[in-house]
Design a protein around this nucleic acid. Structure first.
Lengths: 205, 205
DNA sequence: TAGATTGTTAATCGATTAACAATC
DNA sequence: TAGATTGTTAATCGATTAACAATC
């Protein structure tokens, strides 16, 4: 019997649903509906119901969804009810901002090691983490079984860094360098390039 | 006669094509093909040809595409052959990193004004820009005819800031706050939330 | 009960791919 | 010419929407 394949585009919307549910919970709202969620997110109610139905039945006819329960279910589906340890490679301006950002931990991610290739930075501390040499990346990743990396190095170095990460056992890379990384089957990359987002909007202006 | 409507998903890929073409140009490569581009980007050659064909005929049978020419054409389509003036609202760690980032200008965007609501920051300089009070946002946007904003304020303030921006005449917002902004018809928002990207990958781990 | 909302089905809509004539 | 690659068409594939029975 074939395992039902969930479309990636559906997986991609779950974090957005989860984020909205967290805000609803923070507002003290206990029950919501596909219509309410959809209105907040600019997504049709039908699509939200369809998406959720891929994973189970989480609502109640006539009532809608319990915010806390649905939130927990999506956290479980996305595997963020646990805490993922993440390395950060590249501690320039952006890397520093990411290292200081307080919004990772309560959504399932903790930066546990920093790496940079600049000898002048090695040994510096950010919070309670020390910036380490790239030489130590593989060792740290292997010993601690880390699967997720954030890469904030210059574009010219990003592909090499990604390959080093993969070789060490990293399976998922969040890439801030403005270049498309090539990774082998079974590895995952997400790209964050503000300029591509800006350019997508100027087309319409 | 109806104007041919370009799918937004196609528009969204153009900046990625453009970025790849810029790297090819920097490498001194003068000619490329849909296959070569596709291989670099993990996109099928057919899709690239189909996407480009929405806007015109840019290639030559048997030869492929002239890198410089195609690059110019996409820059024109995306309207980034000009320089867009952008305001940055929110000068925390991330805002500072964005203000320092050197990668905007040569891709069509220049940050021309900084705003923050923290009185302690107002008057501080970053490069040759002075951080201004939110009170001055509308005035600056109107006087200079600015249409694009980057928002890097805490989530709790982002919707209000977005509304202030829209009221002042901003038409496109790049939002770094981890919340879905609601904007009126005719305005555009792109969201950058690293955690949603991470969560999209952990599903598969 | 009456009203509301889910989960699901079928229909619609849209995007991607395969294939190939045209032609450089 | 022979080989390569485009632009485009048609076929396929996939995603979204509309509608509604089920039911809280």
């Amino acid at each position: 019997m074939p395992i039902k394949q969930i479309p990636d585009i559906v997986v991609g919307r779950l974090p957005v649903y989860l984020r909205a549910l967290s805000y609803l919970a923070a507002e003290g709202i206990q029950t919501t509906s596909s219509h309410e969620l959809g209105k907040r997110l600019g997504i049709s109610a039908a699509q939200i119901r369809k998406d959720l139905s891929q994973f189970g039945e989480f609502g109640k006819q006539g009532t809608g969804y319990n915010v806390g329960y649905l939130r927990e279910q999506i956290r479980r589906i996305l595997k963020v009810e646990r805490e993922w340890h993440v390395i950060l490679v590249g501690v320039g301006d952006l890397g520093r901002a990411l290292a200081h950002y307080g919004g990772f931990v309560d959504r399932g991610f903790r930066i546990v090691a920093l790496f940079d290739s600049d000898p002048a930075k090695i040994g510096q501390r950010i919070g309670d983490l020390e910036i380490m040499s790239m030489d130590r990346l593989a060792e740290v990743v292997r010993e601690r079984g880390i699967q997720v990396a954030m890469v904030a190095v210059p574009a010219a170095h990003a592909q090499k860094v990604a390959e080093d990460c993969m070789a060490a056992g990293i399976k998922a890379i969040l890439n801030y360098a403005p270049i498309t990384l090539q990774v082998p089957e079974g590895a995952f990359v997400q790209h964050i390039d503000p300029v591509t987002h800006l350019q997508r909007m100027t087309y319409y202006l």
